[in-house]
Design a protein around this nucleic acid. Structure first.
Lengths: 200, 200, 200, 200
DNA sequence: TATGAATGAGAATTCATTCAT
DNA sequence: AATGAATGAATTCTCATTCAT
């Protein structure tokens, strides 16, 4: 039935899009991967673009919900940020496929790309909120919040992606389990204390 | 005469590849942009792939040379890192076109992509060297150098790219002049002192 | 209930076929226009072809009945012909949609097209009968009746169609009311007295 | 070479379009008929639409030139009209393929169709000019020239088309030779003297 | 009777590449 | 060295038809 089919399509499409990138992904492959006829995709989505946009919006919403959930359980700003880092790293490792799309299919002037950048800024604004709260609470140093948020997002996503591609054979679940703690550790350490040792 | 043609081709190709991405870029457009016939491209390059690889290698080499030059003039590790940050931000702003390719056309399993990631790791290893030197000199806190380098590279490149797309009408030169200082400021501040204020 | 559905289908189908032509008309659009599900069309008709044929036969029969009725009430050949012209012009204006199909979907070698041409010849034979009667009564000049009938049919239908497309915003009813008299006037005048003035 | 290829394409396309109608005509068939690869069509024309429009414009121009030539050699209005009728009938018989397109692919609201109707009106205006000249010379009866022209055009084209389809196996050249005189005869007779016999 | 999700054959279009000049 | 017409494999998208409910 309908909803089920769309689920299959989504799963198949994320996989194929991530493996090949938007342009190289073939509707044929997505259909085969989903186990439906090509026409079925077009029954549910207007075309490749719409499928992709639906997909990314779905992924971004899920990611934001996940990140928000893991951020809100903490009170202390530093812990909030750690929760946020953990959540992002976990989510991106688990959905490496989506992580790649997040970083690659977003730069450009096509309408869908502009829309995605807007949504990524939403994601960054979660980071920014945490930063602002920490600054206001006198726990974080004063920084330009919006730009720091972008930098943190970049640091996290590029690091995760490079980890994923460094070990192509490892599954997302395994990466999340084994590499995530180390990655979070380094990121947290770098971002919290910074590089400089206090000069005595 | 030949060398000139290749120059034209290079300039045209970077532009078109950056505007459209590798897959969407058409040999026709590159030829038109370069003011030569399509066949001419094939006289000088085996095909689209070879043209692209030549291009990226050229860009990466230039970027690395530029970064190295601005890093080596400093002795003090903190100043070295600042020089490095400035150099990367400047270069990427100036070559936004190349910056975009750097972040988008590198993730995948095609041979050229694997090769590019290797070269990006070279770029990151410049960062790592500076970090190691700083740690050894007792100026930087002990961190996992390789991962911190990746994170820093991610922070820099994503930040620059987002700036570029935030103001699509501004030229690279203007961005480098006006936005670079602020971006470097924030990045440096974040990376050097970190977020946390010392608890008294 | 069924008869009603078929009525809806017919009305919807004429509209869509006329707007788009046979090939461009989509079963989807017909279904939507009729307010039924697509499957329903196939419950009532074997397929697109059968639906179309049923439609055209229906239309042709109605037109022929209408034309015959308005022809038979007259006795005098000249008045008969005028009644016939009026009837055709009226009917085609009122059913511009059908008029268009009549002229466009009839030329070709597909069976349904051959069949339609046969039926159009029936329509022309009504004209021919009137001509023959007039000739036999010594009222009309001797002409090759069958070819004159074709010519008259062509003159009428092309004129009406061109009127319809000249004023796309005007409804069939309005055209029938306001333009029909003028059109009939010109046609009648042309066909009755011809172009030449008698040379003294 | 270029011009030659386009010639082939034109000839092949007219044939296929006329046999199948615009919608049913396949680019594959046109390519095969022309003896070129499918891509070649797209090298010379943007797409099916552009090819078709180019074709029709070409045909209409040739037809108008042909009709004008055969009209202008006469001085006497009645002879002019006869020349015009002969020219149209001849041309349409010879290019039955084009004749069909002229009557079928012209009714609709697509831009190309609107454009064609405008051009057909040019064709009709040639008729109208002849009529006006005859009226002004006191040789033709006073009629609404523009509408009479449409009617004459309709009479001619529908008659020719019906002849063509009545004898599908006969070539255009043969039709032009054997049937044209009779058709012109009837049309001329009908249009010149009209149907009515003078009542004594 | 009626539905509408699913199908898949088919068609238009694209574009990297070749090659004769 | 350079050209650009020609190619055809590859790909997206369409839509009449089927069928389980």
């Amino acid at each position: 039935m309908g909803q089920e089919t769309v689920e299959h399509l989504f799963r198949a499409a994320v996989k194929v899009f991530a493996e090949q990138g938007f342009e190289r992904a073939k509707m044929d492959d997505i259909a085969r991967e989903a186990g439906v006829a090509k026409g079925t995709i077009y029954y549910h989505f207007k075309g490749k673009d719409e499928l992709f946009v639906a997909l990314m919006n779905d992924g971004l919403e899920k990611m934001m919900a996940y990140v928000r959930r893991r951020t809100e359980v903490e009170e202390d700003p530093a812990r909030q940020l750690r929760g946020l880092l953990e959540a992002e790293v976990d989510y991106l490792f688990q959905n490496g496929t989506f992580a790649k799309l997040l970083l690659t299919e977003v730069w450009g002037s096509k309408e869908r790309q502009i829309e995605f950048r807007a949504r990524i800024r939403e994601l960054e604004s979660i980071i920014e909120e945490v930063l602002e709260r920490g600054m206001n609470a006198g726990r974080f140093r004063r920084l330009k919040g919006s730009e720091a948020a972008v930098a943190i997002f970049g640091a996290v996503s590029v690091t995760v992606l490079q980890e994923i591609f460094r070990c192509p054979e490892v599954t997302g679940a395994d990466l999340a389990e084994h590499r995530a703690p180390l990655v979070v550790e380094t990121l947290e350490s770098l971002l919290y204390q910074g590089l400089l040792l206090p000069t005595k």
